[in-house]
Design a protein around this nucleic acid. Structure first.
Lengths: 246, 246
DNA sequence: CGTATCCTTGATAAGATTCAAAGTGGGTGG
DNA sequence: CCACCCACTTTGAATCTTATCAAGGATACG
């Protein structure tokens, strides 16, 4: 019974089989039997306060993390201080995959609000992938999805102009909120204009101006972090039909 | 004995254990015993002529490919015809990882010159990963490396200016040629200015001007596709110390 | 309720694109 | 074998987009 699951705190055991994020998360598509075995895999939960790091670039890689509650950004820093936000992550999404390659994390993961993650020890995941049929495939799909997502961001950064980028960003957020059972057209952004700008390869002023422009054009209503998408079709049109782009 | 390996043609069996790319490719770090088992995995080779597709966006996903000879680009196309090159791949590198997530490829892979790939059936890879200790880890590392690489490209596209991007691109090429036993400072590019531009989020004219500028400044000598890096340190400085960047 | 952070807007400047034209080189077919 | 052709590259000038600098305004939080 869902109600009987105790409220977990740091260090307490989680249970994928009891988690309502199962549809979005690593266990997606696995059988009930496989799912119950998966509960062994998720060692503990960990809370991360707003603005605090889940991990930093250079940290040795031990585990990947499934977001149970809250949201994060990942970024990389250049020596001269420039920041590039490489992604925003929401509940059910997986963090830390970058660390596998060199056994050290290559980016920073920062909570955008008070959040909680499920800790998945990587060596256990490796081992259990040998045993559970569906887990290996599912994990590969998660990694592959990350690669595809990154290609989408490259498209955005490499060949769209400012307003197209913001439209694509808003539509992507909308779609992800929808998948989580929230409104497709109304939500609160957890990140600042500067973070959006970094992600989109724009300065914060440019982001702000694009928001204002969309509002003037009746595409959205925006007040600070609260966004209401009034014309989804119009935003989509913007991405596909804008000319003169690079 | 290396000399006894027959010259392979389409459909003929390959052998990782006999391949001189083993250091760069999927089998990296695997034991001799594991390596010999891997030979079962690589089903056949396939030749791809210059300008021809290895696969296209939408093709159903069956296999990943290790580049045995030649080089490729991957790109995604927007409905309005805009192209974004998402990567250039050289010998030993793996193509097709984007397909796992949806069981269909999400980008196009095009040979930049007459090339040859080893075909690795994905279902076999899955199966064999269960059996061979090192294979699963190595495959995960390959995927993770791709994610890290993509983050680097995002950094480049999102927070560097034109000349920094080209410098980063040239240094990356140099490093990859070096890893393959070629000169770090002198090589032939296989792609056009337009393809470089698409990859770097720039127009071909901008790429050309940046090449000319580097030449004026004595950083490189360039003639068409032939590039000679004269001042590697200078190129590196350009990336890290340039100010006023976004 | 004050204060720091974040956001908006305006004016100006810098950087990249666009349009145009000429130059280069490689490959092919006569 | 050579000449022609086509694709690619270079360069210039004008334009456009976005960044930069600056100032004022809103909001959230302690």
């Amino acid at each position: 019974m869902r109600a009987s699951v105790p409220i977990t705190v740091d260090g307490l055991k989680s249970a994928c089989s009891q988690c309502n994020l199962v549809e979005l998360c690593l266990p997606f598509g696995m059988s009930d039997r496989e799912l119950s075995r998966l509960d062994e895999l998720v060692g503990a939960r960990r809370k991360v306060k707003r603005q605090h790091n889940l991990y930093r670039a250079g940290d040795s890689f031990e585990a990947i993390y499934a977001i149970r509650a809250g949201s994060f950004k990942t970024d990389v820093l250049l020596e001269d201080g420039r920041e590039q936000v490489t992604g925003f992550q929401m509940t059910g999404e997986i963090l830390g995959l970058d660390g596998i390659s060199t056994e050290a994390h290559s980016c920073n993961a920062v909570a955008l609000e008070d959040s909680e993650v499920c800790v998945i020890a990587y060596d256990k995941l490796e081992q259990m992938s040998h045993e559970i049929e569906g887990l290996q495939l599912q994990f590969h799909k998660v990694m592959s999805r990350e690669i595809v997502r990154d290609h989408g961001v490259m498209m955005l950064l490499g060949s769209m102009r400012a307003e197209e980028r913001l439209a694509a960003f808003l539509l992507n957020m909308s779609q992800r909120f929808t998948a989580r059972g929230f409104s497709p057209s109304e939500f609160n952004l957890r990140m600042t204009r500067e973070e959006i700008g970094s992600y989109l390869g724009l300065k914060l002023e440019t982001v702000s101006r694009a928001f204002s422009r969309f509002q003037e054009d009746g595409l959205i209503a925006v007040q600070q972090k609260h966004v209401h998408l009034l014309d989804l079709a119009g935003l989509k049109r913007l991405i596909q039909h804008q000319h003169g782009a690079r």
